[in-house]
């Protein structure tokens, strides 16, 4: 009889983290260190290649696939217009996105536990404050949009209503007619948490999602007329959650659909994409 450790180690995938972007590479290294049985570090011919989601990431995904990778993880992908092409001209490997908020394990738990109330939502209000050294504000709005999508909400329209160097407001509608409000401000003294409020006639859901590099748990609370239900905390980073998704996809052979959803977001709000 093998021990669980030996059994798990036998399924470990080799992985190589491209060093192009030091911050993203450090985030990938942290995820790798937190999954020692599922992944093991190797050279450029590894089964899994981790590419930085900064400018040019679509080309890096294609290069990794062409070089024989079976799986690619994109760390914090920016809204690149070329990503849409990945959805139609799919690379010959599984691609998983490790995103700031959309990859949060708390979002997945909320969808699982609160799916029906989420579908009844009439207003979705997403708010965050981006540090002065952080992303461009349209990219922050795109990340909010991806988080909303990841709740199972089909976003039909989204347009920027106001934008300055310090703030941005985007307004849209879901396929079911819910008002969608996404806003971001620029400022220090904050921790990069996304604050999501979903309002229905009889329920409110509030979800806080920390940034992707901390294992500080998100929070999801559903309040109805008679009670409030808070989901158990999950002390896992969003990045690690995505890495596990790739591991599962490699085992099952099932494409997780991240690129298709990312492309759908780009199609709804092309103005948010980097040229």
């Amino acid at each position: 009889m093998t021990t669980p450790t030996a059994s798990a180690a036998s399924t470990a995938s080799t992985v190589h983290v491209e060093p192009a972007d030091p911050l993203r590479a450090a985030a990938a290294a942290a995820a790798l260190a937190a999954l020692p049985l599922s992944f093991t570090e190797a050279g450029r011919d590894a089964k899994v290649i981790v590419v930085a989601g900064s400018g040019g990431w679509v080309d890096r995904v294609r290069a990794a696939a062409s070089a024989g990778a079976q799986g690619v993880i994109v760390t914090d992908p920016l809204p690149a217009p070329g990503a849409s092409a990945l959805a139609t001209d799919t690379p010959a490997c599984i691609v998983v996105l490790a995103e700031t908020w959309a990859s949060s394990p708390m979002l997945r738990a909320a969808v699982h536990q609160f799916g029906e109330p989420i579908a009844r939502t009439r207003l979705i209000d997403a708010r965050s404050v981006e540090p002065t050294t952080g992303r461009d504000l349209p990219a922050v709005i795109f990340a909010q949009l991806r988080a909303v999508q990841s709740l199972g909400i089909e976003v039909s329209t989204l347009a920027i209503a106001a934008q300055s160097t310090s703030s941005i407001l985007a307004i849209g509608r879901s396929a079911s007619g819910a008002r969608i409000v996404l806003s971001a401000a620029r400022g220090d003294g904050v921790d990069g948490t996304l604050d999501l409020l979903l309002v229905a006639a009889d329920e409110v859901i509030r979800i806080d999602l920390p940034d992707s590099r901390t294992a500080r748990p998100g929070r999801a609370v559903l309040t109805s007329a008679t009670a409030a239900v808070e989901l158990p905390t999950i002390w896992e980073t969003a990045h690690r959650n995505s890495w596990r998704a790739l591991h599962d996809a490699l085992e099952s052979g099932l494409e997780p659909g991240h690129i298709a959803m990312f492309a759908a977001a780009l199609a709804v709000a092309p103005a948010l994409a980097e040229a």
């Binding site: 207003l123 209000d125 407001l169 409000v181 806003s183 309002v199 229905a200 006639a201 009889d202 329920e203 409110v204 309040t223 109805s224 007329a225 008679t226 409030a228």
Partner: peptide
Amino acid sequence: HAIGALTEQWR
């Protein structure tokens, strides 16, 4: 930006 909503939930 401002939102206001009256609901049946308690919080």
